[in-house]
Design a protein around this nucleic acid. Sequence first.
DNA 1: ATGTGC
Length: 461
Amino acid sequence: MRVPVRVIATEKLLNEMDSEVFDQAVNVATLPGIQHRSFVMPDGHWGYGFPIGGVAAFDVEEGGVISPGGIGYDVNCGMRVVLTNLTEGDVRPHIRELVNTLFKKIPTGVGGEGFVKLSKQEFGRVLEEGGEWSVRNGYGWKEDLERTELRGMADWADVSKVSKKAIDRGFDQIGTLGSGNHYLEVQVVKEENIKYSEVAKKWGIFPGQVVVMMHTGSRGEGHQIATDYLDLFLSVMRSKYGIEVSDKQLACAPFYSNEGQDYWKAMACAVNFSFANRQTIVHRVREAFSETFRKDAEALGMSQLFEIAHNRATLERHQVNGVTRQLLVHRKGATAAYYAGREEVPAFFRDEGSPVIIGGSMETGSYLLVAMPGASETFCSTAHGSGRTMSRARAKHIWRGEELLRSMESRGIYVRAQGMGGVAEEAGGAYKNIDEVVEATHVAGISRPVVRLVPLGNIKG
DNA sequence: ATGTGC
């Protein structure tokens, strides 16, 4: 091990973690160029190579590596929140119509095709321009970009580093949600769930308000790019760069190598795909609300609060032992928490720090938080979700999709899903207690809860 | 996560 491992958790969460998490965090701590600590966030669980909830930063000037396993197959998977000026009283009577309209307008499920029809050449521009492309083509508002990480565009993207296969998989998937734990949810702000009213008010959040949250990523595009470069790194890692790893799933290459740079530029294309994807979905969400409530999206106050990813590597400056270094921070199932004073904080949030979006299960709710200065310890990182407590197979054994839908509807949550198996897999009971995860990040001083959001309606794959 | 596994 080149650095120690640090797990951020309460005792209960620590006891719930599978033992593979610790083995994996130890493996990560052996990789070339790693700095300070190999971290696990409180929602950590077993993943491909690196744990989900893993954070590792590599000094790129000192032979530090880039590793697809530290980023995840779903490159730049992330969260976006759009506000409305509607209240629970406005929306509840129309929730079925609203959710059905959303379900019709936003394709869900594996292999779902979007409504955006493009030539493969034009698709290259999507991969290089991300959310900028979407907004320029009428999918979203210019000000959405001011409230998106990196302004919705990783500007180092180079489409020539992306395989034809990846292009073929991605070019018809813009504006699609996907499957698994990806979802789009209509949520409500209950007065008693506002935890930090000063910041909530500044962000335009009020008691009774309805907001929209989504969780999706780079679909087949990012998956293929990750697959392509995992293969490439495996073939050169030992022979060309002499890097020995304890687990093949930790395939990596020096950041400043031909292969490392090619993946860095291809990864940015997957990042841009996911920005364009979520941006285009926001456009459809506004259309669905407009149709249901017979008002323009502007009149419905549908401005974007924020969007932030939890599966990416980013070049950032951090202090290590009092020296500022250029680090490649890998966050896999970990949200960036840029506290006030960091250059990454968008202008609107400069005084309080960046929002953090932590998605929970469709039964239990989600959180908005704000980054805290203690995140300087974790390379500006915090948790990203609840974290599963059991396999999808086990969840399907315990719950029946149809039954769960009926039970949720009786509790005021209307869900539309592509398949009933997927519903059972995502049962609230298959996840850790999100309140506990959030509390662990607060106690650690890395992020502070602003509001807990509870579901009214949800669409999923 | 994924045109879901070999």
